[in-house]
Write a protein that binds this DNA or RNA. Structure first.
Length: 583
DNA sequence: GCCGTTTTCGGCCCGACTGTTTTCAGTCG
């Protein structure tokens, strides 16, 4: 696809490099070349500067995994929208082969066989050929493979994308509870991206420690939520449950539990780095343990029972799962300089919640009691302003009634404290949806965008940073406006927001709503680096959604956040005192 | 195609499961 040469972002370039990797593999070139392009793509996604800047300053080679060839491709992509290498590959690889790769179970070899014989280039044609049993007439493909391809296509159509964190968590918890009840398993853990609090989840990984795998496997594939069994082996099985979500289960002996947990928690990139480090010490790291090379066959492991043992044997501190992305955590662990990450138990209160007075479900009294029961010292209720027609935003009269209600509840719940705040809409023209005299009555003012998402990057940036410069605005909420798997982030200059946050003392929210998780983790890290203050919020619209603070905290940990930059990890007085100066 | 506490050349993480195999290739995570 041709790129708009004027508007290419880092992610778009990274996508092309990934595609170049796929094309190289399809063409049958050295696979390590493909691996290199994909590694470079990943480095670019982690980059905290625009590629356009690096190109202009001739600094592309500073990026890890970017050498002469990849740098040339990037420079051409940034300046012209395509590259010589990319164009050559596109010409050499029949269009459509890439499409076939999207079908699980179909890799480069199978795609090539199918294309060479049947000239199939779309999923629809592939499905038709499978239905007509034309695939099983091809070499290396028989009835079983054809059947699996059909099933994969059906799953592909049913599947809308990756699962949101809370959905995957619910499915995992249900399976864990079922397995605990049905079998006498000793230990079971959720591993994978769910344990790492990734913002969306591809599939769920479960690790079980037990010397008797067979009955656990049997129970797993027979679970009531299972819709389809993908694989069933002695120690490893995969199933699909509702909404196309895949769950993998691995059973290992209790002595290998730590190594297995480490292995299945990932990320893949983190594991690859660890194994490389092990190899340089003539050690082999796999899911069963850490061995001297050659000793693994005799089962003489150096470490395997706990994750701590394995990390320690590699001379590093235990690394929290949220950091395991090969983004510097391994070096930090070797040098004993990993941060102490923020936990939900550090959070003293929630500063972004809604009630049934606008678009929430539950009354203030229930929200407050639940927050108090969670151990919070305070809760800000931040119902909407009137500009959002559908949410029944609060009029001045209803704000007064809310203040009275809160005062009464505060007397009852003391020392717990309800703060009356607002989530005030930032209108398309940048004006706030309440006049200053009303804003001044609130304890907390969080400003956010809910309309005119299609504005230009410049307009949107000015709109939000303008609100941040308003003296009565405490925080800015969900600054990118993204809805995971649903709506892309709007165009906005997050660097400018971080700069405005640092200059004005306005807080930036980390929203725990599972479809927002906004600010994204890489920008959290950047905001912290620049000295911005963050606030972790649930954006709860019902009492049980107050638990979404867990997702905000997990996302903040992925951004390497300790308690220091978090406003609501402070007690009530310290939190209020750290708001920017109000007139 | 990249990279160096083993290296400027020769590696590049490792193993389970499936299907079509009679010893292994392909795919996945």
């Amino acid at each position: 696809m041709p790129l708009d040469a004027l508007a290419v972002g880092n992610d778009a370039i990274a996508d092309v490099l990934d595609e170049i990797g796929d094309l190289i593999e399809l063409k049958g070139e050295n696979v390590f070349r493909a691996v290199t392009y994909r590694a470079a793509a990943r480095s670019i996604r982690d980059l905290r500067e625009p590629l356009t800047k690096l190109v202009a300053e001739k600094r592309l080679r500073e990026i890890p995994r970017v050498g002469p060839a990849v740098a040339e491709a990037i420079e051409q992509l940034v300046t012209t929208g395509t590259s010589k290498r990319y164009a050559e590959l596109q010409a050499a690889v029949p269009p459509g082969l890439l499409t076939l790769l999207r079908v699980p179970g179909v890799g480069p070899a199978t795609a090539r066989i199918i294309y060479d014989n049947l000239k199939i280039t779309t999923i629809e044609e592939l499905e038709e050929a499978a239905r007509d049993h034309r695939l099983q007439q091809l070499p290396k493909i028989q009835a079983k493979t054809e059947e699996n391809i059909l099933r994969s296509i059906a799953a592909l159509k049913q599947r809308t994308g990756r699962s949101l964190l809370h959905e995957a968590r619910a499915a995992a918890d249900e399976m864990v509870a079922y397995l605990r009840e049905r079998t006498g398993l000793e230990r079971i853990a959720i591993a994978g991206s769910l344990r790492r609090y990734r913002e969306t989840i591809g599939d769920v990984d479960l690790v079980v420690a037990s010397d008797a795998a067979a009955p656990i496997m049997a129970a797993f594939v027979a679970a009531p939520t299972v819709e389809r069994i993908l694989a069933q082996g002695d120690t490893k099985s995969s199933v699909v449950v509702g909404r196309g979500l895949q769950i993998d289960l691995r059973v290992v002996s209790p002595s290998a539990y730590g190594a297995a947990l480490l292995y299945f928690t990932g990320s893949k990139e983190h594991n690859v780095r660890l194994r490389g480090i092990a190899l340089r010490r003539k050690l082999l790291l796999n899911e069963y343990g850490l061995y001297r090379v050659g000793a693994e066959a005799r089962g003489q492991e150096i470490a395997s029972a706990t994750e701590e043992d394995v990390y320690a044997a590699l001379e590093m501190d235990w690394i929290p799962p949220e950091l395991r992305e090969d983004r510097g955590e391994i070096d930090a662990a070797r040098e004993h300089r990993l941060p102490t990450l923020v936990r939900v138990s550090d959070i003293r209160g929630d500063l972004h919640t809604h009630t049934n007075w606008t678009d929430g479900r539950d009354p203030l009294v229930d929200m407050a009691r639940r927050a108090k029961a969670k151990g919070y010292a305070y809760l800000a209720v931040t119902d909407h302003s009137p500009g959002l027609g559908m949410t029944n935003g609060l009029s001045p009269e209803r704000i007064a009634a809310r203040m009275t209600e809160a005062a009464k509840l505060n007397a009852e719940l003391a020392p717990f404290r309800i703060l009356v705040g607002t989530e005030v809409d930032i209108r398309a023209n940048g004006k706030l949806d309440y006049p200053d005299e009303i804003l001044a009555r609130f304890d907390i003012v969080s400003a956010s965008v809910h309309s005119s998402f299609a504005q230009t990057r410049e307009q949107m940036t000015a709109r939000v940073t303008g609100a941040m410069r308003h003296p009565l605005v405490t925080a800015v909420s969900h600054p990118t406006g993204r809805l995971l798997e649903k709506r892309e982030p709007h165009a906005i200059d997050l660097d400018a927001l971080i700069a405005a946050a640092t200059q004005t003392g306005t807080w930036i929210e980390v929203n725990g709503g599972p479809e927002r998780l906004d600010l994204p983790d890489t920008w959290i890290r950047k905001a912290i680096d620049h000295g911005a203050t963050l606030v972790l919020n649930s954006d709860a619209h019902a009492i049980e959604e107050l638990e979404w603070m867990d997702l905000a905290a997990g996302t903040a940990r992925r951004g390497w956040a300790s308690v220091t930059p978090i406003a609501n990890a402070r007690g009530l007085d310290a939190m209020l005192a750290s708001r920017k100066k109000r007139p």
